[in-house]
């Protein structure tokens, strides 16, 4: 088989029935599944809302202004994520590096806030096994934090790979897919913030 034919066959191998790349379709499908995952965790929290038999209760320990700031930090990271992708799509790798690093830093800042919050709560006597609120709150927000943490590792990997020329304008979809995940994790936080913190107790 001539080289040209082989190249054509190779291009053919990347043809997909929908025109959507495999990786992007995989991410969308995974997010659908993850929706159900967080849905079940949030449902558990909602079912157990107000059913703890001992304190501390949410209204005694929530620091809404603090958590609002850390929520804003996480939402801001969605903006920098968009800017990172836009830069890469225009071929500006250096600008991409700045924004992707900023995204990871904002994510880390959010996790730091969560760490501070968890420590505060445990000083107020709320442990994992203290009451239903403790169990359902720590497991829900902890698993969300784990999602953020994995996202940070992913973003930093993309950052590092860009120095080896593995993240470029022509495969910016890699970053787009990481972005899908990152935005999803942010959206989940909006839901958690609303249902867990803002809903009057």
């Amino acid at each position: 088989m001539s080289h040209a034919n082989a190249a054509a066959a190779h291009a053919d191998a990347h043809r997909t029935s929908t025109g959507l790349s495999h990786n992007k379709l995989l991410m969308w499908t995974f997010l659908a599944s993850d929706c159900m995952f967080f849905g079940s965790l949030i449902m558990t929290y909602m079912v157990y809302r107000g059913r703890s038999v001992t304190g501390p209760y949410p209204d005694e320990i929530f620091n809404i202004p603090f958590t609002s700031v850390s929520a804003a930090v996480l939402l801001l990271s969605s903006l920098t994520m968009v800017l990172a992708l836009a830069a890469l799509q225009r071929g500006k790798v250096k600008v991409f590096r700045v924004w992707i690093l900023a995204t990871a830093l904002l994510g880390t800042l959010f996790l730091g806030g969560q760490y501070y919050e968890f420590t505060e709560f445990s000083q107020h006597g709320l442990g994992l096994g203290t009451n239903l609120f403790g169990s359902s709150f720590f497991v829900l927000t902890g698993i969300h934090g784990t999602h953020v943490g994995l996202g940070i590792i992913w973003l930093l990997t993309l950052f590092a790979l860009s120095f080896r020329g593995l993240v470029r304008q022509d495969n910016a979809e890699k970053v787009e897919i990481a972005g899908l995940y990152w935005h999803f994790v942010d959206i989940v936080w909006i839901v958690i913030f609303t249902f867990v913190y803002l809903l009057p107790y």
Binding site: S33, F37, T44, L128, G129, N131, G134, S135, I143
Partner: peptide, 29 residues
């Protein structure tokens, strides 16, 4: 499956880390 995964996570937290998800004495259901 995610619903079951969450149930298993809660069960594991109850058994390994002392959470009270399914502990009737703490109001668990």
């Amino acid at each position: 499956l995610p619903s079951f995964s969450v149930g298993l996570i809660e069960l594991a937290f109850d058994r390994l880390f002392g959470a009270v998800f399914f502990e009737p004495s703490a109001g668990g259901d």
